[in-house]
């Protein structure tokens, strides 16, 4: 019991640190940006800029659960690309826009299920499996669509990217719902405990009656489906289906989850931490682009934040042992 409490406490401090950084960042921006015409810390700016993060944010929720089981999914960006291309080609081929969305979701679910099946049956680390499918899915997407992006989707579909609640598009609402569901699942149900059990010790979990294979299959399938949803939302937002949709988002999502305090070795991780990680990553990127216009600086700061996040953990863990 004391082990559990210690971990809880550590995560508490980690999350407090993230809140502190976030608050510091926004307070600093608010204080020093007042002289400018448009303010960074205003609801309008923040709601507008938030549209840049929702797709990545959606990916982090299933990814957090997967990372808690000691796995990883590197293929989410490529799955987005495959789903977007499927949707674009289906729509260009004369299928209605909503059936095309259905097809994209089906392809995402299939791609995720294939990941899950291979992880379960081959018993190879998911890093290898999803590294392979990342390359394969993107290759298929590139091959299918060629150089010409699909564009000019109907207005009814593009309404998906319009503000819904307080300037925030449906993607943001979906993220809140998904995060809440995952939070309940992880913290309030037996499944949540099983996920952590798999992450701590898979063999022990299997002997204690956890349906490891089924759980993993479901997790990777969900991850694929969520990636497809993210892809559809991106297509609606930028009116473009092409193979570069979702490029690099897998790394951004993993960064956010790890920044949020999840351990890449499994067992440890919380939804609240991930949400804070997503927000901090987004705010850092937005503020650097807003104020300094130096894309290279973004990479440096994100790297420094990640190292800091790991450092805090290692300091805290060492103190107690």
């Amino acid at each position: 019991m004391s082990l559990w409490r210690r971990i809880r406490a550590m995560e508490f401090w980690h999350e407090l640190l993230l809140v502190g950084l976030l608050a510091g960042l926004l307070a600093g921006a608010w204080y020093f940006e007042q002289a400018r015409d448009a303010e960074f810390v205003s609801w309008e700016t923040q709601a507008n800029l938030s549209s840049h993060m929702w797709e990545m944010a959606l990916l982090t929720i299933p990814l957090t659960l997967i990372i808690i089981t000691g796995g990883i999914d590197l293929s989410v960006g490529a799955t987005m690309s495959l789903s977007a291309v499927t949707m674009g080609l289906a729509w260009r081929g004369g299928v209605g826009v909503w059936p095309a969305v259905g097809l994209a979701l089906a392809v995402g679910l299939a791609a995720g299920s294939l990941n899950g099946a291979m992880v379960v049956f081959f018993r190879v680390h998911p890093l290898i499996i999803t590294l392979a499918t990342m390359s394969a899915y993107r290759g298929v997407a590139e091959g299918l669509i060629g150089a010409e992006p699909v564009s000019g989707f109907p207005a009814g579909f593009e309404a998906l990217a319009e503000p819904l609640v307080a300037g925030v598009p449906p993607a943001g609402v979906l993220f809140v719902v998904l995060a809440a569901a995952a939070w309940v699942l992880l913290g309030r149900t037996a499944i949540g405990r099983e996920l952590r059990a798999i992450g701590y010790n898979e063999t022990a979990a299997r002997f204690s009656g956890v349906a490891v294979a089924r759980t993993k299959l479901l997790l990777y399938a969900t991850s694929g489906l969520v990636a497809a949803v993210a892809a559809v939302l991106f297509v609606a937002r930028r009116d473009t289906a092409k193979a570069d949709v979702g490029a690099g988002l897998e790394l951004a999502a993993i960064t956010a989850v790890v920044l949020g305090g999840a351990s890449i070795f499994g067992g440890r991780g919380r939804i609240l931490g991930t949400v804070l990680g997503v927000l901090l990553l987004h705010e850092v990127r937005s503020l650097v682009a807003w104020r300094w216009n130096r894309d290279e600086l973004t990479f440096i700061i994100v790297g420094a934040l990640l190292i800091l996040s790991v450092l805090v953990h290692s300091v805290l863990t060492r103190r107690k042992s």
Partner: peptide, 25 residues
């Protein structure tokens, strides 16, 4: 827990963030 230190780290980071914003103004 040595939480005061954690707070110290937080505080110093916040101040770094703040001072980072100062120059451009």
């Amino acid at each position: 827990y040595r939480w005061p230190r954690v707070l110290l780290v937080t505080a110093s980071l916040v101040s770094i963030a703040l001072s980072g914003c100062e120059r451009p103004k």
